[in-house]
Amino acid sequence: MGFHEIRFPANLSFGSVGGPERRTEIVTLANGFEERNSLWAHSRRRYDAGVSLRSLDDVESLIAFYEARRGQLYGFRWKDWSDYKSCLPSKQPTAMDQSIGLGDGTRRTFQLTKTYVSGGQSYSRPVVKPVLGTVLVAISGDPKVETIEFFVDVTTGVVSFPTPPDEGVRITAGFEFDVPVRFDTDAVQTSVSSFKAGDMPSVPVVEVRV
């Protein structure tokens, strides 16, 4: 799959609408009870980039970005302003934000994840597009130094260690991250007159699996 490691202009994604979606199969039985089955292990996010455009210059920037991605052909990074940190949006990431694994004395690589918890239930979301320079890692609460004590691949979200962490130690991380997406349309239609009147173009964006 073609993917460009470039972020959609963050000032244009600010104010966009969107969020996660799930695919659930629901069958209503003869007795009125339901059987529900989740078809996706992970949610998929959708956004509309059009509603955040504020000027004709914004429209031109969006068209340039769209053309450079060849429409739906190439994926890109998207900053979801409602969910882009390993911690609460009002906080700053720390190396103890998220648990990403336990050492076993052999394993050297760990996938960045963000866990969502509510009512005793939880969901772990793989984070595959961390932002360069924001990843913090600790082993058993001891912060480590990037490029010396750990390495991170910002194209996959995989953290690796030169030597395997000891058995039973907890590996934690904090980070900012983007969502891998693509445009979900083969046409972007704009009108200068209608835009000035407040009629924003619809530019759907959808998360992709990478």
Rank of each mutant, 00 (worst) to 15 (best):
V135C: 02
L112T: 04
S122A: 14
R125G: 01
L112N: 01
L136K: 06
C87H: 06
T115K: 03
S86F: 01
T106D: 04
T109G: 03
S86E: 01
R107D: 05
T134N: 01
T113D: 02
L136D: 00
S124V: 13
R108E: 05
S90M: 08
D104K: 08
C87T: 15
V128D: 00
G103K: 03
Y116V: 14
R108P: 00
Y84M: 12
D83I: 11
Y116E: 13
G105L: 05
D142K: 15
G133S: 12
A138D: 02
P89A: 10
P126F: 09
L112E: 01
S124M: 05
S124R: 08
S118V: 11
G119W: 05
T94F: 01
L102K: 10
T113L: 08
P143Q: 07
G133Q: 08
Q92T: 15
P130T: 12
G101A: 09
P130M: 05
R107W: 06
R125E: 12
S124W: 02
Q92Y: 13
L88D: 14
G120S: 08
D83H: 14
Q121I: 14
S99C: 12
S99H: 09
T134D: 00
V137R: 00
G119P: 02
R125S: 11
S118L: 06
A138L: 03
G133M: 06
D104L: 05
D104T: 11
L132G: 09
L132T: 15
G141I: 10
D142Y: 14
T134C: 01
S82V: 13
G105K: 08
V131A: 04
S124Y: 02
L102A: 11
T113A: 09
S82Q: 14
K91Y: 09
T94Q: 02
S124C: 05
Q111E: 06
A95V: 09
S90V: 14
R125Q: 14
G141C: 07
K114Q: 12
D142S: 15
V127I: 14
I100E: 00
S82P: 00
T94W: 00
L102H: 09
S90R: 11
S82L: 14
P143A: 11
R107N: 10
Q92P: 02
T106C: 02
A138N: 03
Q92G: 09
S124N: 06
I139R: 06
Q98F: 06
P126I: 10
C87R: 04
S122W: 07
S124Q: 07
Y84F: 15
T115A: 04
T109L: 00
S82H: 13
V135H: 01
L102Y: 10
I139S: 04
P143W: 06
Q92H: 13
K91N: 10
D142A: 15
K91T: 10
K144Q: 14
G101C: 08
R108L: 05
K144V: 11
G133K: 06
K129L: 09
K144W: 05
S90C: 08
P89F: 12
I100Y: 01
L132C: 09
A95D: 07
L132W: 13
D142L: 14
C87G: 03
S99G: 09
Q121C: 09
